[in-house]
Amino acid sequence: MRIRNTTQVWGSAAKSLHWLMALGIVGAMTLGLVMVNLPMSALKFELYAIHKSLGMTLLVLAALRISWRWMNPVPALPDSVPPHEQRLAGWAHRVFYVLLFAMPISGYVINSAANFPLNVFGVVQVPNLVPESERITDAATWVHGSLFWLFAGLIVVHVAGALRHHFIFKDGILRRMLPTRSSKET
């Protein structure tokens, strides 16, 4: 298994980060959707705690991921993809990277402005970013909620695009992100 990317293929580190974060993001988004609709209770509290811990973990992974991307070549899309679609894909991925940071940071601001303690999975105590303020809480909540729908929409487009390439164009783009068996590797 190749760890680093080449101009042709994704390395195992980039693939692992992609799927690990995909799992975490879908988990955090599902939790978020469920927990905000629960009445105030200890269960709601518990779900918030997991959601926040997951979010802070994803923030760290996002920093790792963008650093790794800068340190590695990005595999080029095949020529069969028309230039305007390549540009579109490029922009979609840029927005994804912005969201990878904007989602957890806006959530972190909500928690800070509410002056709630933040303890990541009961292991790391994280300090608050901003002073207690209901106005900041409300503004950050609006941002976090709006970005949620942008994120959800973009994930749908991303998955639909990957499946379109796999089943309609059969150009191997989806398979590039899947784990490869070492025997098959060239």
Binding site: F45, A49, K52, N115, F116, P117, L118, N119, G122, Q125
Partner: peptide, 8 residues
């Protein structure tokens, strides 16, 4: 006191 493991 503590809330979600963090002190306040």
């Amino acid at each position: 006191a503590t809330q979600q493991g963090g002190q306040f």
